[in-house]
């Protein structure tokens, strides 16, 4: 592939440099983190992911990063690009300052190169009872839901679990037990869904009101800024705070 790369580079009108974070705990020379530079041919429409794939397939097959769908739905390739959390596949190289610096997501343990350990993120997501719960189901037909209610939860259901928000959150960085924006958004998705009923909503508000829940959020909006699916995460957290207060007042 190196020969093909040379040919590609020669033919290219423009080339771009990537500075990519490298680390492998068991390979000599990579145990100490470093940055490698790759020069790749630039093409209109090229994404950060395209550039990484080119570098891997043509120069260094050990360059490691997660990716799958290439269309911002699998949520595998959240990266720290030029100092900001972004999805590699939906970030155009042309929109960035060159050279482009690519690092693994901050505030997560690096497994290798750009791959971080996602276990903590998954644990937080799964701690909010992230599944639909209701006792009353009509037999043989669907439950009814108003268009307004579906619209209400729509944005919250778009989460692709990329963890960009969690990585951007200062509170989550300082408090490892903080549920984080994505998990709270998941709770919102169910708490606001009228099909679950009032009792379940109470239960869900209790979960997010815990010590490491919504009240930790200091509304810095960093999660909302980096969300690749434009989910208004901070607003959702704020709304849950208001709902929790309302619900607590009811029992006074």
């Amino acid at each position: 592939m190196r020969e093909r790369a040379e040919a590609n580079l020669k033919d290219a009108e423009e080339t771009v440099k990537l500075k990519v974070f490298r680390y492998d705990p068991e390979v000599e020379g990579k145990k100490d983190p470093r940055f490698d530079t790759f020069r790749v041919p630039f093409k209109k429409g090229m994404t950060v992911l395209d550039a990484l794939i080119f570098a891997r397939d043509h120069f260094d097959s050990s360059l490691t990063f997660r990716h799958s769908c290439r269309q911002a739905i699998c949520g595998s390739d959240a990266l720290f690009v030029n100092g900001r959390q972004r999805l590699g596949c939906k970030t155009q190289m042309s929109e960035l300052e060159w050279p482009v610096r690519i690092e693994p997501l901050p505030h997560a343990e690096v497994v290798k190169d750009l791959v971080v350990d996602m276990e903590h993120f998954y644990d937080q997501m799964e701690s909010v009872e992230p599944y639909f719960q209701t006792d009353e189901l009509p037999s043989g037909e669907e439950q009814k839901q108003t268009r307004e209610n579906r619209e209400k939860v729509k944005m919250s259901t778009r989460c692709i679990w990329c963890s960009a928000c969690m990585s951007s959150c200062n509170i989550a960085a300082g408090d490892n037990e903080y549920l984080g924006p994505a998990a709270i958004n998941k709770a919102y998705r169910f708490a606001m869904d009228e099909r679950e009923g009032e009792a379940m909503k109470e239960h869900r508000l209790n979960i997010i009101e815990q010590e490491h829940g919504v009240w930790r959020c200091q509304t810095q909006f960093s999660c909302t800024e980096v969300c690749p699916k434009d989910i208004p995460l901070t607003e959702h957290i704020q709304e849950l705070k208001r709902e929790a207060v309302k619900s607590n007042l009811k029992f006074w």
Binding site: Y131, F132, L137, G140, E141, E142, Q143, K144, Q145, T146, R147, R150, V153, K154, T157, F190, D193, R195, E196
Partner: peptide, 20 residues
Amino acid sequence: EEVIQLEHWGMPFSREDDGR
């Protein structure tokens, strides 16, 4: 039956005016 099952698991389908 399988589609109704998905709805019962909470899948956020698009809705008509009558809620179906």
